[in-house]
Design a protein around this nucleic acid. Sequence first.
DNA 1: AGTATCTACTTGCAAAATGCAAGTGGATCT
DNA 2: AGATCCACTTGCATTTTGCAAGTAGATACT
Lengths: 155, 155
Amino acid sequence: MTSLRKTSSPTSSKTLQRSPCVVSNVLEIIGDRWTLLLVRDLLFFNKHEYKEFLASPESIATNILADRLKKLVNEGLVGEITHPENKSRKLYYLTAKGKDLMPILVEIVRWGAAYLPETAEMRVIFERIKSNPDLLKAQILESLEQWEHQILNAH
Amino acid sequence: MTSLRKTSSPTSSKTLQRSPCVVSNVLEIIGDRWTLLLVRDLLFFNKHEYKEFLASPESIATNILADRLKKLVNEGLVGEITHPENKSRKLYYLTAKGKDLMPILVEIVRWGAAYLPETAEMRVIFERIKSNPDLLKAQILESLEQWEHQILNAH
DNA sequence: AGTATCTACTTGCAAAATGCAAGTGGATCT
DNA sequence: AGATCCACTTGCATTTTGCAAGTAGATACT
């Protein structure tokens, strides 16, 4: 869509309606492997820093990571602040809009659990989804809010 | 991932585990704009033919469409038969595995309804999701099964 | 104070995926 | 038999991705 080189416009979610269909418009924002993997990291794995995203097993390239973070921030799904203990670091976190992607992620995990060979890494989340998905969602939100309380409020 | 030119391997869902994470592996299959738009067409808009997919407002290119249909069939999300009334036409339909993507699609629509400017086209589905999502799901499955009964069983 | 290191990027370039326009080949219609 | 419809395929230009290397600012180390 937008070139990697071009600085994306600062005005947020200008989402020019390409299609009359919501699904299509949503996919313009998150219908890309890397974007959703970042949301996964923010949501399920408590990652908040550039280097943490880089360390994910899918090994995203640095330019793609920078690009996707910028887009996520521009779309208002993610916020950023400088690390309270180190000016050269940044912290990224999900906004309400970003957190609300959780149901989508949960359904993705559920589908994967049903149809894909099992993977150890996600086993815990599988089980929690199977036994009580609403509880899992609540607990994830709770842990995100705790982080926010510690970091954002102090900021 | 695989080149467009190369004929994708006939052995279905060989899904080589690139990542230990389910989300990542699911996204290898459906984490692409066009693929999910085809699922949308099959699920929400009762489309079953190549030309119908081409007619969607996002105007997919013919080579991409052919490629994605092939992948969907290889992954076992979609099945195909020749049109009962015309050998040169084909009918595509969702398998159980494909239909089970519905919760993901529904959550995408729900998120879009909450955060994106409203679009007339999807209004009806919005409302049905809001008032009774499980009923909607049941009704969609029912209508797909009716189609299957008409077409597939007769085949 | 000066140098190394860490951190979040940017840049250049090759390879892959996408989009577009124009075929192709088989089935059907007239 | 010729035209038309249909599901693709092909060639090529453009865009996006992936990789490796660089850069600039902040911190840590001596």
